[in-house]
Amino acid sequence: MTDTCDNGRDAPRCVPASIPLLVTQKPLVQVRGLVKRYGGRVVAVDRLDLEVYAGEVLGIVGESGSGKSTVLRVLNLEERPDSGEYYFNTPELAGLNLFALDRPAQRRVRTFEIGIVYQNPHLGLRMRNTSSGNIAERLITAGERNYRALRLAARDALAASEFPLERMDDLPIRLSGGMQQRVQLAKAIALKPKLLLLDEPTTGLDVSVQARVLDTLKRLQRETGVTTIIVSHDLGVIRMLADRVMVMRRGRVVERGLTDQVLEDPQDPYTQQLVHAKL
């Protein structure tokens, strides 16, 4: 962690060393022509294209109902899209359209390659299991059958997300909102995923708690360099974490670019509205 990265807004954007690769390298994650409808009537996501490069943080902003959370659920392979392609450019998965895999194969990808943190911890955690158990489950799915290894891994992941270890065996339902998000985060990173999905991870938390959780997210991202997509309606959160940003409205992308560029000098009227509302 470098000093310049620590105090959010005024610091120059922390540009990972890999940025020049944007030009030369293939993106780690590629999505093409993603369409998702609900009930045949509502088009939640309309022909979305998306690319994320290794180590990069992509922000998706938009008001509620813009389809941004749907994008994350589809990218987490928990909902099937109506059409589209989804590629991970890793040696094992290159050339495979992840949307077209069968359920068990998708489960493997979801287990090994993707981590997710939901706004609503009830979606991400089993409230009747211990916090550590929530993390252990992921390792179990990955095939770990050693109790000690499960304990160690759960402890390490919780420590990395700055969770108080003396409470690792508490039920999430007994934890505060901030701590629940840390358990989710620990679960998401326990298997060192290629892609981290954050869906409004700090929305609804107290301002001070929100700041601390954001600090943790930022530190983790720097340290591990995990490729991240963060969805938020809060431009402050996006500004703090995202390298690039994509603005969505009614299922479509209306503007995309470097975070600074888009937020300082929005081109699309809708983005302008968002930015001004925020200011």
Binding site: P104, G133, I140
Partner: peptide, 18 residues
């Protein structure tokens, strides 16, 4: 069908913890 027995193992884990 998918040999997805993670929840059973998790149950064992939880018993060991508790």
């Amino acid at each position: 069908a998918e040999a997805d027995y993670g929840l059973l193992w998790l149950r064992l884990y939880e018993q060991l913890v508790r």
